[in-house]
Design a protein around this nucleic acid. Structure first.
Lengths: 232, 232
DNA sequence: TCCCTTATGCCAACGCCATTGACGTTGTTG
DNA sequence: CAACAACGTCAATGGCGTTGGCATAAGGGA
């Protein structure tokens, strides 16, 4: 099977699409993000992406090995946006907090992408750069290498997983959110207080879940705990 | 459109499949879980499920509205297993810890299901029962209702989200894990130490990510923080 | 300037998927 | 024993990702 996908750097020749568009990896990722925003995770398909690009669906395969490859590229793009123009201040807690919030925000801006990429490890440049930066911050803070790794895994990995999952659940399309909420209300409303004495407290829980991000709180908590490990 | 799906309670008549199987919701969910374990998330399709059941694919639609409905049923089944025969001891921190670990374990046993259900809210009986139980524990511990809700959202929701995500990432099929690891090693090995001075520390990070669950640590941390809120 | 190579876009097709409506059949109820 | 409704199956629909073959245009070499 001949390789159909050529790395970005080697590309020199470009032919415009029948509709005059000139394609690039970046343009395709951008378009895919727009489609995700407008039509949800299920709305991103090769055919529709081709249509949105003014190209044939199969053209996408000249740029990405397949839809999964594209999805990982999207994830890495968001990491890249989060890391863009970040420079450490020297205060490691503040720096890690800043990075966590940046990643959270990047995914909040594209929650549909969060749904697709949660629990994925891309190994792509921007994610690697993020790992590199965070490890550097931890080591710069005085953690021995082994501790830096342990703390990264125990706290930072979790924090980032939270951030992405939080975005996925918090910012679903409004229609779905309301549908979910309706399901919940119906379900809870039917339950007799005799068997479910705590049902009354769930209404504000629903509201909180729909509207408040718990991530910043958890981030601070995890960072404080990491700091305690350094002190101890 | 006539409703094709009848609630479990109303079912009375059963006809065996051409191959002699008698179907139930429980049996279908069980079979789906087995398929997930054996063939991964993408291996669970209506057709293959029908085949595994010794029935036509469309038969599944007599029991579930669609594949998504089935997936939510799977999620609720795992919640049910986690909550099975749980009874609070009266020590609220120990009880919440126990519940967190139970849910974590239930999803660890079916990581493929975790991949499918992460970031979903089912509103189904077992999940509702879990909410009910947890709220009861918090209120029983002396938290006013508003605090119970806030703590639930800030700590418990995150803990459970991470339990599921942790299962999803930690226990992927071995092949995929090794593939991922290989990708990572390749990626990192290529990076010059000049631009990535912390690369050396990533090898143990990979090992930790692949093998160690960070969830119990995070769970304790979140619970300790909740306890501090009660004291303060 | 012209040609040749090759990346690229397009077309058509494959096999898979979820889902549905119609139909026959079976178990249950009265 | 008759009528009904639930159930399983069949066949079909429209969509999906993906691929091989083909036409074509861009860029380099002469």
């Amino acid at each position: 099977m001949a390789k159909r996908v050529v790395p970005e750097a080697a590309r020199r020749r470009r032919r415009p699409t029948k509709q005059g568009q000139v394609l690039t990896h970046a343009h395709i990722v951008e378009t895919a993000l727009r489609m995700l925003r407008e039509h949800g995770p299920a709305g991103l398909t090769a055919r529709r992406l081709g249509l949105a690009l003014g190209a044939d669906a199969s053209t996408v395969y000249r740029y990405f090995r397949g839809m999964d490859d594209l999805i990982l590229a999207i994830a890495d793009e968001l990491f890249g946006r989060a890391m863009a123009s970040f420079s450490p201040s020297g205060d490691w807690q503040a720096d890690l907090r800043e990075l966590g919030l940046r990643i959270h925000n990047a995914y909040l801006a594209h929650p549909q992408a969060a749904v697709l990429t949660a629990s994925r490890v891309t190994g792509r440049p921007n994610e690697v750069a993020s790992d590199e930066t965070i490890l550097g911050i931890l080591r710069g803070a005085g953690f021995p290498d082994a501790d830096a790794v342990r703390i990264y895994h125990a706290f930072i990995d979790q924090s980032l997983a939270f951030a992405i999952l939080d975005a996925a659940t918090l910012a679903l399309p409004k229609a779905a959110r309301e549908a979910d909420e309706e399901v919940w209300r119906d379900t809870y409303a039917r339950l007799p207080a005799s068997t479910h004495p705590n049902i009354a407290a769930t209404a504000p829980l629903l509201v909180a879940r729909m509207n408040d991000s718990a991530y910043p709180t958890a981030l601070d908590l995890l960072l404080a705990s990491a700091a305690a490990q350094l002190a101890g």
